[in-house]
Design a protein around this nucleic acid. Structure first.
Lengths: 191, 191
DNA sequence: TCTGGACGATACGGAACCGTCCCGACCAAA
DNA sequence: TTTGGTCGGGACGGTTCCGTATCGTCCAGA
């Protein structure tokens, strides 16, 4: 009975406000105002600010999946890095993400949602990608995937988000080269 | 004329409150109470909350320097990683840091202080370390230090802080191995 | 002994915000 | 045409907090 268009407008407003001011300063009044909506519309949908925020996060993290499967590790890697870069450059997500990292350290409930909605699916997709590379003989069977995963996303997050530096065009290529060398990837043709 | 012991107590309280609740929820009242001090003591020292917070950050980032110089890149690298791990496991710093990352994206003045107090000195020290390795012939002269720096701190930050996962004992060793392979380090003896 | 400044405590005005409540307008289904 | 639920708007009590102001106390230096 609640109008979906209004729910959508509110969710958008939450994400915008979140990106602009951070979770701690997220105010119901500001969200309602930005959405062009009465506060009643918010409390008709969620019992509290935290519930509303969690709903918005669940929404925004959905469905940006797709496991790259180009047939070679190098190109799979590049596609993953490209997607990551896009994610971390997006004007909204790139501002919400570090805020989320800081907040999850203090808010277990939020931490659970973030892990379930973002962390876990991302890692699962990357694992599929690496397993395919192992099957193709591009990676040793005993490769420490846990460790390799850290090397995949970490440098991009570090550069773009933590250091707030930009990444010049060739950056992802150079990074992919380094990663392939680090994990001792074999060309599929070679032994 | 202001009592240094009280200034110190306040700074400690700021950092504790910051670690516990985050910058956005940092309250002057709570700081004063935790320090066992009147609010007047705070405003006698700093004109506002932001100034006080910036002073506290400048304090806490000071002097944890030391460029490792063991004579070999591998061991230098390990010492750097050890120091980084300690830093990111410290109960106070590890909670303030992600909050700082999130806040700097919104607060240019804070961003400046953090860059000057933490980012820049850290990178300069790492650069010294890599230059020594180049002089010893352990690294190629045209190594992209910018890129290598990302690979050094990023994985540890990613694992400990972003993912909030623990690092088992052998983790730093395995990471150092990977890094050395990635940057194509030569043993000093070899050509 | 006098005195100025820092000290802890606390009251204050003003602002922001949470969550509740109530209003009249609107609309779709009965 | 009636009715039930959502809509935007906004008042409300209660809380938290900022930054200022005002106490009486304490102490070091003149």
């Amino acid at each position: 009975m609640l109008q979906p268009a209004i729910t959508r407008a509110i969710t958008e407003a939450v994400l915008d406000e979140w990106a602009a001011h951070g979770y701690a300063r997220l105010s119901m009044e500001a969200v309602a105002k930005r959405a062009g909506v009465g506060k009643s519309a918010l409390y008709r949908r969620w019992p509290s600010k935290q519930e509303m925020a969690i709903a918005a996060i669940s929404e925004f993290s959905v469905a940006r999946a797709v496991v790259p499967d180009t047939g070679a590790l190098r190109t799979d890697l590049r596609e993953t890095l490209d997607a990551l870069m896009e994610w971390l450059t997006h004007p909204r997500f790139s501002r919400i993400l570090p805020d989320l990292v800081a907040e999850t350290a203090r808010n277990p409930e939020l931490a659970g949602v973030v892990a379930a909605m973002i962390g876990t699916p991302r890692r699962e997709r990357a694992t599929v990608m690496f397993r395919r590379a192992i099957e193709r003989g591009e990676l040793r069977e005993d490769t420490d995937l846990e460790l390799v995963q850290d090397l995949l996303a970490a440098p991009v997050y570090w550069r773009l988000t933590v250091r707030a530096a930009e990444a010049e065009p060739g950056y992802l290529d150079a990074l992919a080269d380094l990663l392939l060398r680090a994990i001792g990837a074999q060309d599929g043709e070679q032994k």
